[in-house]
Lab assay of single mutants.
Amino acid sequence: MQRVNMIMAESPGLITICLLGYLLSAECTVFLDHENANKILNRPKRYNSGKLEEFVQGNLERECMEEKCSFEEAREVFENTERTTEFWKQYVDGDQCESNPCLNGGSCKDDINSYECWCPFGFEGKNCELDVTCNIKNGRCEQFCKNSADNKVVCSCTEGYRLAENQKSCEPAVPFPCGRVSVSQTSKLTRAETVFPDVDYVNSTEAETILDNITQSTQSFNDFTRVVGGEDAKPGQFPWQVVLNGKVDAFCGGSIVNEKWIVTAAHCVETGVKITVVAGEHNIEETEHTEQKRNVIRIIPHHNYNAAINKYNHDIALLELDEPLVLNSYVTPICIADKEYTNIFLKFGSGYVSGWGRVFHKGRSALVLQYLRVPLVDRATCLRSTKFTIYNNMFCAGFHEGGRDSCQGDSGGPHVTEVEGTSFLTGIISWGEECAMKGKYGIYTKVSRYVNWIKEKTKLT
Protein backbone atom coordinates (compact mmCIF):
# COMPACT_ATOMS: atom_id res chain seq x y z
CA MET A 1 0.00 0.00 0.00
CA GLN A 2 2.91 2.29 0.80
CA ARG A 3 4.31 1.55 -2.65
CA VAL A 4 1.05 2.46 -4.39
CA ASN A 5 0.85 5.71 -2.55
CA MET A 6 4.36 6.56 -3.61
CA ILE A 7 3.52 5.85 -7.28
CA MET A 8 0.38 8.09 -7.17
CA ALA A 9 2.32 10.85 -5.56
CA GLU A 10 5.13 10.63 -8.04
CA SER A 11 2.97 10.08 -11.23
CA PRO A 12 -0.30 12.12 -11.10
CA GLY A 13 -0.50 12.26 -14.90
CA LEU A 14 -0.66 8.53 -15.06
CA ILE A 15 -3.66 8.48 -12.78
CA THR A 16 -5.51 11.04 -14.94
CA ILE A 17 -4.95 9.01 -18.10
CA CYS A 18 -6.28 5.89 -16.44
CA LEU A 19 -9.45 7.58 -15.24
CA LEU A 20 -10.14 9.11 -18.67
CA GLY A 21 -9.78 5.74 -20.34
CA TYR A 22 -12.25 4.24 -17.92
CA LEU A 23 -14.87 6.92 -18.61
CA LEU A 24 -14.57 6.66 -22.39
CA SER A 25 -15.04 2.92 -22.22
CA ALA A 26 -18.15 3.21 -20.07
CA GLU A 27 -21.72 3.27 -21.73
CA CYS A 28 -23.42 6.70 -21.61
CA THR A 29 -26.95 6.55 -20.17
CA VAL A 30 -27.53 10.31 -19.44
CA PHE A 31 -27.91 11.70 -23.03
CA LEU A 32 -30.30 10.49 -25.76
CA ASP A 33 -29.08 9.73 -29.18
CA HIS A 34 -29.59 12.25 -32.04
CA GLU A 35 -32.73 10.61 -33.50
CA ASN A 36 -34.62 10.35 -30.19
CA ALA A 37 -33.63 13.83 -29.14
CA ASN A 38 -35.29 15.28 -32.27
CA LYS A 39 -38.56 13.50 -31.43
CA ILE A 40 -38.78 15.40 -28.15
CA LEU A 41 -37.78 18.80 -29.58
CA ASN A 42 -39.90 18.55 -32.71
CA ARG A 43 -39.88 22.30 -33.69
CA PRO A 44 -40.19 23.51 -37.31
CA LYS A 45 -37.15 25.10 -38.75
CA ARG A 46 -37.35 28.89 -39.01
CA TYR A 47 -37.00 30.73 -42.31
CA ASN A 48 -33.34 31.55 -41.85
CA SER A 49 -32.43 28.72 -39.55
CA GLY A 50 -28.72 28.25 -39.33
CA LYS A 51 -27.96 31.78 -40.52
CA LEU A 52 -27.26 35.00 -38.70
CA GLU A 53 -30.46 37.16 -38.68
CA GLU A 54 -28.46 40.35 -39.10
CA PHE A 55 -27.54 39.26 -42.63
CA VAL A 56 -31.01 38.25 -43.99
CA GLN A 57 -34.16 40.15 -44.95
CA GLY A 58 -36.69 40.55 -42.12
CA ASN A 59 -39.79 38.36 -41.89
CA LEU A 60 -43.09 39.93 -40.69
CA GLU A 61 -44.25 36.81 -38.86
CA ARG A 62 -40.94 36.31 -37.09
CA GLU A 63 -40.32 39.95 -36.30
CA CYS A 64 -43.78 41.21 -35.26
CA MET A 65 -46.29 38.36 -34.94
CA GLU A 66 -44.43 35.79 -32.82
CA GLU A 67 -43.43 38.58 -30.48
CA LYS A 68 -43.90 42.34 -30.24
CA CYS A 69 -41.53 44.22 -32.47
CA SER A 70 -40.16 47.73 -32.59
CA PHE A 71 -40.54 50.20 -35.43
CA GLU A 72 -36.94 49.48 -36.47
CA GLU A 73 -37.62 45.75 -36.65
CA ALA A 74 -40.71 46.36 -38.77
CA ARG A 75 -38.61 48.65 -40.97
CA GLU A 76 -36.29 45.71 -41.66
CA VAL A 77 -39.26 43.80 -43.13
CA PHE A 78 -40.63 46.53 -45.42
CA GLU A 79 -37.32 48.25 -46.18
CA ASN A 80 -39.41 51.38 -46.82
CA THR A 81 -40.30 54.05 -44.27
CA GLU A 82 -43.66 54.98 -45.83
CA ARG A 83 -44.92 51.37 -45.96
CA THR A 84 -43.61 50.75 -42.47
CA THR A 85 -45.50 53.77 -41.16
CA GLU A 86 -48.77 52.56 -42.70
CA PHE A 87 -48.28 49.13 -41.09
CA TRP A 88 -47.26 50.65 -37.76
CA LYS A 89 -50.46 52.75 -37.46
CA GLN A 90 -52.63 49.63 -37.48
CA TYR A 91 -50.13 47.43 -35.59
CA VAL A 92 -49.97 49.71 -32.56
CA ASP A 93 -53.70 50.35 -31.88
CA GLY A 94 -55.81 48.66 -34.57
CA ASP A 95 -57.53 50.09 -37.65
CA GLN A 96 -59.32 53.36 -36.77
CA CYS A 97 -60.99 53.31 -40.22
CA GLU A 98 -62.77 50.01 -39.60
CA SER A 99 -66.02 51.82 -38.66
CA ASN A 100 -65.99 53.86 -41.91
CA PRO A 101 -66.18 57.26 -40.17
CA CYS A 102 -65.77 59.37 -43.33
CA LEU A 103 -69.03 60.64 -44.84
CA ASN A 104 -70.06 61.74 -48.34
CA GLY A 105 -67.64 59.44 -50.13
CA GLY A 106 -64.58 60.46 -48.10
CA SER A 107 -61.53 58.15 -47.99
CA CYS A 108 -60.22 57.14 -44.56
CA LYS A 109 -56.51 56.95 -43.68
CA ASP A 110 -55.61 55.24 -40.40
CA ASP A 111 -53.33 56.91 -37.85
CA ILE A 112 -52.14 56.15 -34.33
CA ASN A 113 -55.12 56.66 -31.98
CA SER A 114 -56.75 58.67 -34.76
CA TYR A 115 -57.67 58.78 -38.45
CA GLU A 116 -57.77 61.28 -41.29
CA CYS A 117 -60.57 61.71 -43.85
CA TRP A 118 -59.64 62.72 -47.38
CA CYS A 119 -62.78 64.53 -48.52
CA PRO A 120 -64.11 64.77 -52.09
CA PHE A 121 -64.62 68.16 -53.68
CA GLY A 122 -67.36 70.10 -51.95
CA PHE A 123 -66.93 68.67 -48.45
CA GLU A 124 -64.67 69.24 -45.48
CA GLY A 125 -64.55 68.68 -41.72
CA LYS A 126 -63.25 65.86 -39.51
CA ASN A 127 -65.61 63.37 -41.19
CA CYS A 128 -66.30 65.28 -44.46
CA GLU A 129 -69.64 66.29 -42.96
CA LEU A 130 -69.49 69.97 -43.96
CA ASP A 131 -70.71 71.13 -47.37
CA VAL A 132 -68.51 73.83 -48.86
CA THR A 133 -70.17 74.25 -52.24
CA CYS A 134 -73.70 75.06 -53.34
CA ASN A 135 -73.41 72.58 -56.21
CA ILE A 136 -74.07 69.61 -53.92
CA LYS A 137 -77.53 69.41 -52.35
CA ASN A 138 -77.75 73.20 -52.34
CA GLY A 139 -75.01 73.26 -49.69
CA ARG A 140 -77.59 71.74 -47.30
CA CYS A 141 -79.27 75.15 -47.25
CA GLU A 142 -83.04 75.00 -46.86
CA GLN A 143 -83.70 77.83 -49.30
CA PHE A 144 -80.88 79.80 -50.93
CA CYS A 145 -77.16 79.10 -51.14
CA LYS A 146 -74.22 81.26 -52.16
CA ASN A 147 -70.51 80.50 -52.28
CA SER A 148 -68.41 83.10 -50.48
CA ALA A 149 -65.10 84.47 -51.74
CA ASP A 150 -63.23 81.64 -49.97
CA ASN A 151 -65.62 79.08 -51.51
CA LYS A 152 -67.59 78.49 -48.32
CA VAL A 153 -71.35 77.90 -48.26
CA VAL A 154 -73.44 80.85 -47.09
CA CYS A 155 -77.15 80.11 -46.65
CA SER A 156 -79.91 82.71 -46.78
CA CYS A 157 -83.69 82.90 -46.71
CA THR A 158 -86.44 84.68 -48.58
CA GLU A 159 -88.12 87.77 -47.15
CA GLY A 160 -90.03 87.05 -43.95
CA TYR A 161 -87.63 84.33 -42.83
CA ARG A 162 -84.32 84.25 -40.96
CA LEU A 163 -81.58 81.66 -40.62
CA ALA A 164 -81.98 79.26 -37.73
CA GLU A 165 -79.20 78.57 -35.25
CA ASN A 166 -77.74 75.85 -37.47
CA GLN A 167 -77.21 78.46 -40.23
CA LYS A 168 -78.90 76.10 -42.72
CA SER A 169 -82.62 76.08 -41.96
CA CYS A 170 -85.02 78.99 -42.32
CA GLU A 171 -87.53 79.96 -39.65
CA PRO A 172 -90.36 82.51 -39.79
CA ALA A 173 -89.42 86.04 -38.79
CA VAL A 174 -92.97 87.44 -39.17
CA PRO A 175 -96.37 86.12 -38.04
CA PHE A 176 -97.49 85.05 -41.53
CA PRO A 177 -94.47 84.46 -43.76
CA CYS A 178 -94.89 83.82 -47.46
CA GLY A 179 -95.54 80.37 -48.83
CA ARG A 180 -96.45 78.75 -45.51
CA VAL A 181 -99.67 76.93 -44.67
CA SER A 182 -100.52 77.82 -41.07
CA VAL A 183 -104.10 76.58 -40.61
CA SER A 184 -103.76 73.69 -38.18
CA GLN A 185 -106.23 71.29 -39.80
CA THR A 186 -104.59 71.70 -43.21
CA SER A 187 -100.98 71.48 -42.11
CA LYS A 188 -101.27 67.68 -42.25
CA LEU A 189 -102.21 67.99 -45.91
CA THR A 190 -99.05 69.84 -46.85
CA ARG A 191 -97.73 68.38 -50.06
CA ALA A 192 -94.63 66.23 -50.18
CA GLU A 193 -91.51 68.27 -49.52
CA THR A 194 -89.05 68.71 -52.33
CA VAL A 195 -85.42 67.99 -51.50
CA PHE A 196 -82.59 69.64 -53.42
CA PRO A 197 -80.79 67.37 -55.87
CA ASP A 198 -77.19 67.85 -56.94
CA VAL A 199 -77.35 70.86 -59.26
CA ASP A 200 -74.90 72.50 -61.62
CA TYR A 201 -75.51 76.05 -60.41
CA VAL A 202 -73.15 77.55 -62.92
CA ASN A 203 -75.38 76.45 -65.79
CA SER A 204 -78.71 76.44 -63.97
CA THR A 205 -80.19 79.40 -65.80
CA GLU A 206 -81.12 78.27 -69.26
CA ALA A 207 -79.49 80.06 -72.15
CA GLU A 208 -82.77 81.08 -73.69
CA THR A 209 -83.53 84.05 -75.88
CA ILE A 210 -86.82 85.78 -75.25
CA LEU A 211 -88.43 86.35 -78.60
CA ASP A 212 -89.38 89.95 -77.89
CA ASN A 213 -89.16 91.20 -81.45
CA ILE A 214 -91.18 88.50 -83.19
CA THR A 215 -94.23 89.84 -84.95
CA GLN A 216 -96.99 87.37 -85.48
CA SER A 217 -100.61 87.57 -86.50
CA THR A 218 -103.15 86.94 -83.80
CA GLN A 219 -103.79 83.22 -83.46
CA SER A 220 -107.25 81.82 -82.89
CA PHE A 221 -107.11 79.66 -79.77
CA ASN A 222 -109.95 77.52 -78.49
CA ASP A 223 -110.74 77.91 -74.80
CA PHE A 224 -107.32 79.29 -74.04
CA THR A 225 -108.35 81.10 -70.87
CA ARG A 226 -107.59 77.91 -69.09
CA VAL A 227 -108.68 72.31 -62.46
CA VAL A 228 -109.84 69.19 -64.22
CA GLY A 229 -109.33 65.98 -62.26
CA GLY A 230 -108.20 67.87 -59.16
CA GLU A 231 -109.17 67.64 -55.51
CA ASP A 232 -111.07 69.94 -53.18
CA ALA A 233 -108.67 72.11 -51.24
CA LYS A 234 -109.15 72.61 -47.51
CA PRO A 235 -109.73 76.14 -46.18
CA GLY A 236 -106.35 77.86 -45.89
CA GLN A 237 -104.47 75.20 -47.85
CA PHE A 238 -103.55 77.71 -50.60
CA PRO A 239 -103.75 81.03 -48.74
CA TRP A 240 -102.00 82.96 -51.55
CA GLN A 241 -104.78 82.15 -54.04
CA VAL A 242 -107.25 84.91 -54.95
CA VAL A 243 -110.26 85.00 -57.26
CA LEU A 244 -110.99 87.84 -59.70
CA ASN A 245 -114.57 89.04 -60.19
CA GLY A 246 -115.53 91.40 -63.01
CA LYS A 247 -118.23 91.19 -65.64
CA VAL A 248 -118.63 87.64 -64.36
CA ASP A 249 -117.54 86.13 -61.08
CA ALA A 250 -114.47 83.90 -60.84
CA PHE A 251 -113.37 84.68 -64.39
CA CYS A 252 -109.68 84.34 -63.45
CA GLY A 253 -107.37 83.69 -60.54
CA GLY A 254 -104.28 85.33 -59.13
CA SER A 255 -101.65 85.19 -56.37
CA ILE A 256 -100.86 87.52 -53.48
CA VAL A 257 -97.42 89.14 -53.85
CA ASN A 258 -97.83 91.28 -50.73
CA GLU A 259 -100.56 93.22 -48.93
CA LYS A 260 -101.05 95.63 -51.84
CA TRP A 261 -100.28 93.63 -54.98
CA ILE A 262 -101.63 90.66 -56.94
CA VAL A 263 -99.96 88.88 -59.87
CA THR A 264 -102.13 87.34 -62.59
CA ALA A 265 -102.22 86.68 -66.35
CA ALA A 266 -102.27 89.74 -68.61
CA HIS A 267 -104.95 88.25 -70.86
CA CYS A 268 -107.33 88.19 -67.87
CA VAL A 269 -107.59 91.96 -67.51
CA GLU A 270 -109.12 94.62 -69.73
CA THR A 271 -108.64 98.34 -69.49
CA GLY A 272 -111.75 100.05 -68.15
CA VAL A 273 -113.31 96.92 -66.65
CA LYS A 274 -113.79 97.06 -62.89
CA ILE A 275 -112.14 94.15 -61.10
CA THR A 276 -112.68 93.01 -57.53
CA VAL A 277 -110.15 90.75 -55.83
CA VAL A 278 -111.33 88.30 -53.17
CA ALA A 279 -108.64 86.80 -50.91
CA GLY A 280 -109.26 84.10 -48.32
CA GLU A 281 -111.92 82.53 -50.55
CA HIS A 282 -112.73 78.82 -50.43
CA ASN A 283 -116.33 78.17 -51.52
CA ILE A 284 -117.43 80.92 -53.89
CA GLU A 285 -121.10 80.36 -53.09
CA GLU A 286 -120.76 80.56 -49.32
CA THR A 287 -119.69 83.25 -46.89
CA GLU A 288 -117.08 81.68 -44.63
CA HIS A 289 -115.93 84.90 -42.89
CA THR A 290 -112.37 84.42 -44.09
CA GLU A 291 -112.86 86.47 -47.27
CA GLN A 292 -111.35 89.91 -47.87
CA LYS A 293 -112.55 91.95 -50.86
CA ARG A 294 -110.51 94.72 -52.46
CA ASN A 295 -110.93 96.86 -55.55
CA VAL A 296 -108.21 97.08 -58.20
CA ILE A 297 -107.03 100.66 -58.68
CA ARG A 298 -104.19 100.03 -61.14
CA ILE A 299 -103.34 97.39 -63.72
CA ILE A 300 -99.74 96.97 -64.93
CA PRO A 301 -99.33 94.47 -67.78
CA HIS A 302 -95.75 93.55 -68.61
CA HIS A 303 -94.24 96.17 -70.91
CA ASN A 304 -93.65 93.54 -73.64
CA TYR A 305 -97.23 92.29 -73.59
CA ASN A 306 -99.21 93.11 -76.73
CA ALA A 307 -102.53 91.30 -77.11
CA ALA A 308 -102.87 92.56 -80.70
CA ILE A 309 -99.79 90.55 -81.67
CA ASN A 310 -100.11 87.56 -79.35
CA LYS A 311 -102.55 87.24 -76.48
CA TYR A 312 -100.37 84.85 -74.49
CA ASN A 313 -96.79 86.03 -75.00
CA HIS A 314 -95.49 87.74 -71.83
CA ASP A 315 -98.80 86.82 -70.24
CA ILE A 316 -98.33 88.44 -66.85
CA ALA A 317 -99.80 91.51 -65.11
CA LEU A 318 -99.82 93.15 -61.69
CA LEU A 319 -102.90 94.49 -59.89
CA GLU A 320 -102.65 97.20 -57.24
CA LEU A 321 -105.31 97.10 -54.51
CA ASP A 322 -107.11 100.08 -53.01
CA GLU A 323 -106.50 98.90 -49.43
CA PRO A 324 -103.86 96.55 -48.03
CA LEU A 325 -104.90 93.01 -47.25
CA VAL A 326 -104.75 91.90 -43.62
CA LEU A 327 -102.47 88.89 -43.53
CA ASN A 328 -103.60 85.84 -41.59
CA SER A 329 -103.76 82.05 -41.94
CA TYR A 330 -106.20 82.36 -44.86
CA VAL A 331 -104.55 85.33 -46.58
CA THR A 332 -100.80 84.84 -47.04
CA PRO A 333 -98.41 85.92 -49.85
CA ILE A 334 -96.67 83.44 -52.12
CA CYS A 335 -92.87 83.46 -52.00
CA ILE A 336 -90.98 84.77 -55.03
CA ALA A 337 -87.31 83.84 -55.30
CA ASP A 338 -84.71 85.43 -57.57
CA LYS A 339 -84.42 84.46 -61.23
CA GLU A 340 -81.85 81.72 -60.69
CA TYR A 341 -83.66 79.94 -57.89
CA THR A 342 -87.11 80.29 -59.47
CA ASN A 343 -85.70 78.47 -62.48
CA ILE A 344 -84.07 75.83 -60.26
CA PHE A 345 -87.30 75.26 -58.35
CA LEU A 346 -89.22 74.81 -61.61
CA LYS A 347 -86.75 72.10 -62.64
CA PHE A 348 -87.59 70.10 -59.54
CA GLY A 349 -90.14 68.54 -61.86
CA SER A 350 -93.61 69.06 -60.43
CA GLY A 351 -95.74 71.86 -59.09
CA TYR A 352 -99.23 72.58 -57.82
CA VAL A 353 -101.92 74.50 -59.67
CA SER A 354 -105.15 75.72 -58.11
CA GLY A 355 -108.30 77.57 -59.08
CA TRP A 356 -112.08 77.65 -59.43
CA GLY A 357 -112.06 76.91 -63.16
CA ARG A 358 -114.19 74.41 -65.00
CA VAL A 359 -114.02 70.88 -63.64
CA PHE A 360 -114.22 69.47 -67.19
CA HIS A 361 -114.00 70.89 -70.72
CA LYS A 362 -116.95 73.23 -71.36
CA GLY A 363 -118.41 72.06 -68.06
CA ARG A 364 -119.46 73.88 -64.91
CA SER A 365 -117.06 75.90 -62.79
CA ALA A 366 -115.95 74.58 -59.42
CA LEU A 367 -117.55 75.98 -56.29
CA VAL A 368 -114.75 74.86 -53.97
CA LEU A 369 -111.12 75.68 -54.72
CA GLN A 370 -109.50 72.83 -56.65
CA TYR A 371 -105.84 71.84 -56.72
CA LEU A 372 -103.74 69.43 -58.74
CA ARG A 373 -100.13 68.33 -58.84
CA VAL A 374 -98.77 68.49 -62.38
CA PRO A 375 -95.41 67.25 -63.71
CA LEU A 376 -93.13 69.47 -65.77
CA VAL A 377 -92.98 68.44 -69.44
CA ASP A 378 -89.67 68.61 -71.29
CA ARG A 379 -89.49 71.29 -73.94
CA ALA A 380 -89.10 68.94 -76.90
CA THR A 381 -92.27 67.05 -75.97
CA CYS A 382 -94.04 70.33 -75.35
CA LEU A 383 -93.17 71.68 -78.81
CA ARG A 384 -94.30 68.47 -80.53
CA SER A 385 -97.66 68.54 -78.77
CA THR A 386 -99.02 71.66 -80.49
CA LYS A 387 -98.97 73.58 -83.75
CA PHE A 388 -98.91 76.86 -81.84
CA THR A 389 -95.77 78.75 -80.82
CA ILE A 390 -94.30 77.94 -77.42
CA TYR A 391 -92.03 80.85 -76.53
CA ASN A 392 -89.04 80.54 -74.22
CA ASN A 393 -90.95 82.44 -71.55
CA MET A 394 -93.51 79.61 -71.41
CA PHE A 395 -93.39 76.02 -70.17
CA CYS A 396 -95.64 72.96 -70.37
CA ALA A 397 -96.96 70.89 -67.49
CA GLY A 398 -99.53 68.13 -67.27
CA PHE A 399 -100.24 64.51 -68.17
CA HIS A 400 -99.89 62.95 -71.60
CA GLU A 401 -102.84 60.62 -70.97
CA GLY A 402 -105.10 63.59 -70.27
CA GLY A 403 -107.86 63.65 -67.68
CA ARG A 404 -106.17 66.17 -65.39
CA ASP A 405 -105.35 69.77 -66.20
CA SER A 406 -106.04 73.42 -65.49
CA CYS A 407 -109.05 74.77 -67.40
CA GLN A 408 -111.18 77.82 -68.16
CA GLY A 409 -111.41 80.13 -65.18
CA ASP A 410 -108.06 79.01 -63.74
CA SER A 411 -106.06 81.49 -65.85
CA GLY A 412 -103.88 83.84 -63.86
CA GLY A 413 -103.71 81.41 -60.97
CA PRO A 414 -100.48 80.08 -59.49
CA HIS A 415 -98.17 77.25 -60.41
CA VAL A 416 -96.14 76.77 -57.23
CA THR A 417 -93.25 74.54 -56.21
CA GLU A 418 -92.94 73.50 -52.60
CA VAL A 419 -89.39 73.66 -51.24
CA GLU A 420 -88.86 72.12 -47.81
CA GLY A 421 -92.35 73.14 -46.71
CA THR A 422 -92.34 76.63 -48.26
CA SER A 423 -94.08 77.31 -51.60
CA PHE A 424 -92.56 79.51 -54.31
CA LEU A 425 -94.27 80.91 -57.40
CA THR A 426 -92.83 79.24 -60.51
CA GLY A 427 -95.55 79.77 -63.11
CA ILE A 428 -98.85 81.44 -64.00
CA ILE A 429 -101.68 79.48 -65.62
CA SER A 430 -101.95 80.88 -69.15
CA TRP A 431 -103.48 78.75 -71.91
CA GLY A 432 -103.97 75.33 -73.49
CA GLU A 433 -105.88 73.44 -76.16
CA GLU A 434 -109.19 72.38 -74.64
CA CYS A 435 -108.76 70.94 -71.13
CA ALA A 436 -107.25 67.65 -70.01
CA MET A 437 -107.08 66.45 -73.61
CA LYS A 438 -104.84 63.44 -74.32
CA GLY A 439 -101.48 64.48 -75.75
CA LYS A 440 -102.04 68.14 -74.83
CA TYR A 441 -100.60 70.08 -71.93
CA GLY A 442 -101.28 73.21 -69.94
CA ILE A 443 -99.09 76.16 -70.93
CA TYR A 444 -97.73 78.44 -68.20
CA THR A 445 -95.91 81.75 -68.05
CA LYS A 446 -92.38 81.14 -66.77
CA VAL A 447 -92.10 83.38 -63.71
CA SER A 448 -88.29 83.19 -63.58
CA ARG A 449 -88.25 85.58 -66.57
CA TYR A 450 -90.18 88.24 -64.68
CA VAL A 451 -89.14 88.14 -61.02
CA ASN A 452 -87.03 91.30 -61.22
CA TRP A 453 -89.91 93.16 -62.85
CA ILE A 454 -92.37 91.88 -60.23
CA LYS A 455 -90.18 92.91 -57.31
CA GLU A 456 -89.42 96.32 -58.79
CA LYS A 457 -93.09 97.17 -59.38
CA THR A 458 -94.51 95.80 -56.13
CA LYS A 459 -92.22 97.44 -53.59
CA LEU A 460 -94.13 98.60 -50.53
CA THR A 461 -93.47 102.28 -49.74
Score class of each variant (00 low, 15 high):
residue 2 Q to H: 08
residue 9 A to G: 14
residue 12 P to A: 14
residue 14 L to V: 11
residue 14 L to S: 04
residue 14 L to M: 09
residue 17 I to C: 07
residue 20 L to Q: 02
residue 21 G to R: 04
residue 24 L to I: 07
residue 25 S to Q: 09
residue 26 A to L: 04
residue 27 E to R: 06
residue 31 F to A: 08
residue 32 L to Q: 15
residue 33 D to F: 05
residue 34 H to A: 11
residue 35 E to M: 09
residue 36 N to Q: 10
residue 39 K to M: 12
residue 40 I to N: 15
residue 41 L to H: 15
residue 45 K to Q: 15
residue 53 E to N: 09
residue 56 V to K: 05
residue 59 N to Y: 05
residue 59 N to M: 04
residue 61 E to L: 11
residue 61 E to M: 15
residue 62 R to L: 04
residue 62 R to K: 04
residue 65 M to S: 08
residue 68 K to H: 14
residue 68 K to G: 10
residue 72 E to N: 15
residue 72 E to D: 15
residue 76 E to A: 04
residue 79 E to S: 15
residue 79 E to T: 15
residue 87 F to E: 15
residue 89 K to Y: 06
residue 90 Q to H: 14
residue 92 V to Q: 15
residue 94 G to P: 12
residue 97 C to P: 01
residue 98 E to S: 11
residue 100 N to P: 02
residue 101 P to M: 02
residue 104 N to Y: 02
residue 105 G to H: 06
residue 106 G to P: 00
residue 109 K to E: 07
residue 114 S to I: 04
residue 122 G to P: 07
residue 126 K to H: 10
residue 127 N to D: 06
residue 134 C to K: 02
residue 136 I to P: 04
residue 138 N to T: 03
residue 141 C to N: 01
residue 142 E to N: 04
residue 142 E to T: 09
residue 142 E to W: 04
residue 145 C to K: 00
residue 146 K to P: 01
residue 147 N to L: 13
residue 147 N to P: 09
residue 150 D to N: 09
residue 154 V to E: 07
residue 158 T to L: 08
residue 160 G to H: 04
residue 162 R to E: 09
residue 162 R to D: 07
residue 163 L to N: 03
residue 167 Q to D: 09
residue 169 S to L: 05
residue 170 C to S: 00
residue 172 P to N: 05
residue 173 A to S: 11
residue 173 A to H: 09
residue 176 F to C: 04
residue 176 F to Y: 11
residue 179 G to N: 02
residue 180 R to W: 04
residue 180 R to D: 02
residue 181 V to P: 11
residue 183 V to G: 11
residue 184 S to K: 10
residue 186 T to E: 12
residue 190 T to H: 13
residue 192 A to M: 13
residue 192 A to R: 06
residue 193 E to G: 12
residue 193 E to Q: 05
residue 194 T to S: 11
residue 196 F to S: 12
residue 197 P to A: 13
residue 200 D to R: 11
residue 200 D to P: 12
residue 211 L to T: 11
residue 211 L to W: 13
residue 216 Q to C: 06
residue 221 F to E: 13
residue 221 F to D: 13
residue 224 F to V: 11
residue 225 T to R: 09
residue 226 R to Q: 13
residue 227 V to R: 11
residue 229 G to D: 12
residue 232 D to Q: 09
residue 235 P to T: 06
residue 235 P to K: 10
residue 239 P to N: 02
residue 239 P to E: 00
residue 241 Q to C: 05
residue 243 V to Y: 13
residue 243 V to H: 06
residue 243 V to T: 10
residue 244 L to C: 02
residue 245 N to C: 04
residue 247 K to L: 07
residue 247 K to P: 11
residue 248 V to P: 08
residue 250 A to E: 07
residue 251 F to E: 07
residue 254 G to Q: 00
residue 254 G to M: 00
residue 255 S to A: 05
residue 257 V to R: 01
residue 258 N to P: 00
residue 259 E to R: 06
residue 261 W to R: 00
residue 265 A to V: 03
residue 265 A to F: 01
residue 267 H to T: 05
residue 267 H to D: 03
residue 267 H to S: 11
residue 273 V to S: 09
residue 274 K to P: 11
residue 276 T to F: 05
residue 277 V to H: 00
residue 277 V to A: 06
residue 282 H to E: 03
residue 284 I to M: 07
residue 285 E to H: 12
residue 286 E to D: 10
residue 288 E to S: 10
residue 289 H to N: 14
residue 290 T to N: 11
residue 295 N to G: 07
residue 301 P to Q: 11
residue 302 H to P: 02
residue 308 A to P: 06
residue 312 Y to I: 10
residue 320 E to S: 02
residue 321 L to R: 01
residue 323 E to P: 04
residue 324 P to S: 06
residue 325 L to E: 01
residue 327 L to M: 12
residue 329 S to C: 05
residue 331 V to Q: 01
residue 336 I to H: 01
residue 336 I to V: 12
residue 336 I to W: 01
residue 337 A to V: 03
residue 343 N to S: 11
residue 345 F to W: 06
residue 349 G to L: 03
residue 349 G to V: 02
residue 352 Y to W: 06
residue 353 V to L: 05
residue 354 S to E: 02
residue 357 G to Q: 14
residue 361 H to T: 12
residue 364 R to P: 07
residue 367 L to P: 12
residue 367 L to E: 14
residue 369 L to A: 14
residue 370 Q to V: 03
residue 370 Q to G: 08
residue 370 Q to F: 02
residue 374 V to K: 03
residue 374 V to A: 11
residue 374 V to Y: 02
residue 375 P to V: 08
residue 376 L to H: 06
residue 380 A to D: 11
residue 381 T to I: 13
residue 381 T to N: 15
residue 384 R to Y: 06
residue 387 K to R: 11
residue 388 F to C: 06
residue 388 F to K: 12
residue 389 T to K: 06
residue 389 T to E: 10
residue 395 F to E: 00
residue 395 F to A: 01
residue 396 C to V: 02
residue 396 C to H: 02
residue 397 A to N: 01
residue 397 A to P: 01
residue 400 H to M: 13
residue 403 G to K: 14
residue 410 D to P: 13
residue 411 S to C: 06
residue 412 G to L: 10
residue 412 G to I: 14
residue 413 G to K: 06
residue 417 T to D: 02
residue 421 G to I: 03
residue 421 G to S: 06
residue 422 T to H: 03
residue 424 F to P: 01
residue 424 F to A: 02
residue 428 I to L: 10
residue 429 I to A: 14
residue 433 E to S: 14
residue 434 E to Q: 12
residue 435 C to M: 03
residue 436 A to I: 11
residue 442 G to N: 14
residue 442 G to L: 07
residue 442 G to E: 04
residue 443 I to C: 03
residue 444 Y to T: 00
residue 444 Y to L: 05
residue 445 T to W: 01
residue 446 K to E: 05
residue 449 R to Q: 14
residue 449 R to P: 15
residue 450 Y to K: 02
residue 450 Y to P: 01
residue 451 V to L: 04
residue 452 N to P: 12
residue 453 W to Y: 02
residue 456 E to F: 09
